[in-house]
């Protein structure tokens, strides 16, 4: 499934200029793209728009030919559960759940049966070298481990796209590089698109396809 942005504008009330203003952008299935932008350049808003969390003020976000903005809120939730994986800068794991439960719960939202979700979660956590921390709570994991759990959670439904919002910003260089490579590998194995936004020049070196937001914006 390709993703196409057509005349996309996202504005917030009270702001005269749009936060996101991209005339055209296409990301083909399976591609991994790094979008670079400074603070306030609309990186997170763009990802939220791709996820259907924020609706465009103008234009469309097309998954093949389906405009995500045309879906009702409930259908957008279902679409997101099945087609979008999200990796956040601050990991955003649920504190009361174990590593395995944090991963499995996303699969359950995607309609996967509980037993199957657990099996997938276990396999994925082993894949990101956390097979020994399945029952650990987020608070007992290191930041690097927490982000690896978040990566496993993002890919468990083999989504169309994995959206990564500054995934290495809270990690040291060594951990950051490791997590980045792991993210790319697991996303590739899931045959998903990876859209990563960052302000760190170091991260760009891991990608062949790097686009600067200010350059692709109108």
């Amino acid at each position: 499934m390709d993703i196409r942005l057509e005349n996309l504008q996202v504005s917030y009330p009270g702001h005269s200029t749009p936060v996101v203003d991209i005339p055209s952008l296409t990301v083909a299935a399976g591609r991994q793209i790094c979008l670079v932008g400074g603070s306030g350049s609309g990186k997170t808003t763009l990802l939220n728009t791709l996820a259907g969390i924020v609706l465009p003020t103008r234009g469309s976000v097309l998954y093949d030919d389906m405009d995500i903005a045309s879906l009702s809120e409930g259908r957008r939730d279902r679409f997101r559960a099945a087609n979008v994986g999200y990796v956040f800068q601050t990991f955003n794991l649920l504190q009361g759940l174990s590593a395995m439960e944090n991963v499995a719960i996303a699969a359950s939202f995607g309609g996967v049966k509980a037993s199957e979700a657990k099996t997938r979660a276990k396999d994925l956590l082993e894949r990101v070298n956390l097979g020994h921390r399945l029952d650990s709570r987020p608070g007992t994991l290191s930041v690097g481990e927490q982000q690896r759990v978040a990566i496993a959670r993002a890919v468990i439904n083999r989504p169309t796209v994995v959206l990564a919002d500054e995934p290495t910003a809270n990690l040291d260089v060594e951990n950051g590089d490791e997590v980045l490579e792991l993210l790319k590998e697991t996303v590739r194995e899931a045959h998903s698109i990876l859209v990563l936004v960052t302000h760190e020049p170091r991260v760009q070196s891991h990608f062949d396809d790097v686009q600067v937001l200010s350059e692709i914006s109108a």
Binding site: G74, A81, R153
Partner: peptide, 16 residues
């Protein structure tokens, strides 16, 4: 609210 936002972002419906 933050937990709710995380849940929604990873696919939980509003009704859930």
């Amino acid at each position: 609210r933050r937990e709710i936002a995380i849940l929604r972002a990873i696919g939980a419906r509003k009704t859930t």
